[in-house]
């Protein structure tokens, strides 16, 4: 039962909010760079600055991410 809704990604969000990462849909090396910083499936993060690049808060520190990578981070609101 495929969802009719498009997957929502980090770059779709237009305002700062808390979210849960549900999937990282990026090439291996890019995915790994995000994951070692704590942006991986099941983890709770907060979007704190939208734009390009954007800023998220993960595990108590702020991480700047380019929009291209944010596009591959599938999220759901929490």
């Amino acid at each position: 039962m495929a969802s009719i809704l498009e997957k929502m990604t980090l770059s779709d969000l237009s305002s700062p909010q808390p979210i849960t990462v549900s999937e990282i849909d990026l090439p291996d090396d890019d995915a790994q760079r995000l994951k070692v910083l704590g942006i991986c499936e099941g983890r709770k993060v907060s979007l704190i600055q939208v734009g390009s690049p954007m800023v998220v808060e993960v595990c108590g520190s702020q991480i700047g991410i380019s929009r291209r990578l944010a596009n591959g981070v599938v999220v759901k609101p929490r």
Binding site: D30, L34, L37, S61, I63, G64, I65
Partner: peptide, 12 residues
């Protein structure tokens, strides 16, 4: 090829 996209910790 693409330039590596930015992922950077913004330390306190």
């Amino acid at each position: 090829g693409p330039t590596q996209s930015l992922v950077i910790e913004l330390p306190p």
